[in-house]
Nucleic acid binder design. Sequence first.
DNA 1: GGGGGAATACTCCCAAGGGAGTATTTTTTA
DNA 2: TAAAAAATACTCCCTTGGGAGTATTCCCCC
Lengths: 207, 207
Amino acid sequence: MLRIAIVDDHPIVVKGLKDLLEMEPEWTVVGCFHTGNSLLAFMADNEADIILLDISLPDTSGIRLCKEIRRRWPDTQIVAVSNLSDRSIIQQMLQQGAGAYILKTATPEEVTQCITEVMGGNIFISKEVQEIISRPGLNAPATIPELTKREKQILQLLAEGKRSADIAAELFISPLTVKTHRATLLQKFGVSNMVALVKSARELQLI
Amino acid sequence: MLRIAIVDDHPIVVKGLKDLLEMEPEWTVVGCFHTGNSLLAFMADNEADIILLDISLPDTSGIRLCKEIRRRWPDTQIVAVSNLSDRSIIQQMLQQGAGAYILKTATPEEVTQCITEVMGGNIFISKEVQEIISRPGLNAPATIPELTKREKQILQLLAEGKRSADIAAELFISPLTVKTHRATLLQKFGVSNMVALVKSARELQLI
DNA sequence: GGGGGAATACTCCCAAGGGAGTATTTTTTA
DNA sequence: TAAAAAATACTCCCTTGGGAGTATTCCCCC
C-alpha cells in the first residue's frame, strides 16, 4: 500500500486530490494538512511514501519545507505542486530534492502518472514545466544571489516603493549606507535600476 | 434542481468542487470549463442558475467575463472564486455584479453556505474577505486610475525595468515624451517613484 | 583571539528621475 | 464638423539614483 500525504492550504484542492488518489486501489491518503508545521508534526510519529507539497503555503516556504523533509526522511518522495511557473522556483525545488514538479493546472491523469513515475525512482516533469525550464536564457539569472540579513531587509523596504532617505530614517542609519546596500543589491542581481531589481527579486521569490 | 456551472483552469479544483456540490441532492453541476470562452459557448444554448467563476483564467480576465455574463444572462448568479485577496479586485468583482466572493482557501462548508445565500438573493462575503475590504485605507487608492492605451503600454515597459531611453527607442518616440507619460502615471497613481508605481499597478491588476 | 564577512559611512561625478509648466499635432467622439 | 481627449515634444530646475572606490567598526566563527 502506497502511503500518500497531502499538504495544501486549499481544502477544495485537497478534497479533489484525495478523491482522485484513492480511486487507485493500491494507494491510500494517510494525511491531509494545510500548513507545513502540521505535516511535520504528523511525520514525527507516522510514515508516508509520498508527499504532495504545495509550495505556496501560509506558514513556511515550500522550498524550506522540502529541504527539511529530505533531511529528516530521505526515503520519502516529494511531489511539488504549484501554480508558479517561474523557472528559478522550479530549479530550486528540484535542487532541494523534489522528485517531481507539476502545475496546479495538471489533469488528474498527469497527477497519477506523476506519482507512478516518482515511485519508480524517476523524476517526473510535466510537459508544461519542461517547456519552461528548457527555455534557455529567458528569465536569465539562473544563479540565485545570496543576500545578507540587512540586504533582505532593505530590499523589502525598497520593494514597498520607499526612497533611500525614508529607509535610512526607518532603520536609524545614514542614507549613504542605504545607498551602499542598494548598490550591492543591484550588483548581486545584475540589474541597473530599482524596478528591475524588485522584478527580479519577485521572480526569485526573495520578497 | 439548481443548475451550477464551474469555470476554473485547475482540473483538480473543478473535480473537488463538483464532487462537493453534487453531494447536495437538489444541486447539479451542468458544466465544467477551464476557459471563459468555453463557458460562453456553453451558455449560448444552455442555462445555469449559478456560475462558480475563477477570476484568474488563462484566456480572459474574470472581471471582463463577469461583466459579460451579467449583461447577457442577468438572472444567472455569479460566485467569484479567487486566491487573490487584493481589496481592489474584490471591489471590482462586486461592482461587476458578482453575488459572492470567496477565497480558494474556503472550506467546503463555506462554499455550500455561500451558494445557499446567493440563491436566497443575498450577497455572500466570507469572513476573510470581509476583513480585507473593511480594513480602511491600508491599500489606500480605492479609485482605480483610468489609463490611456499609450500609458498602459509604457507602464508595462516600465514594469519590466526599462529606462525611459530604452522605451523611447522601442516606441520610436522622444525620451521626453516618455518622461511626460511617466509623469502622468505617477500623478494618476498618486505615487512618487517608479517602484511604488509598479507596486500599485500590480495590486490593481493593471499589469 | 585573530581572520573575514557584514554593516556602517564616506568621497566624487554624472546620468536619470521627478515637479511644473507650455505648446503643437493627431485622433477620437459627441 | 467642432470640441475634447490623447499623444507628442519641449523648457527649467532640482533631487535622487547609480558607478566606483575607500575606510572603519562590529561581530561571528574557527
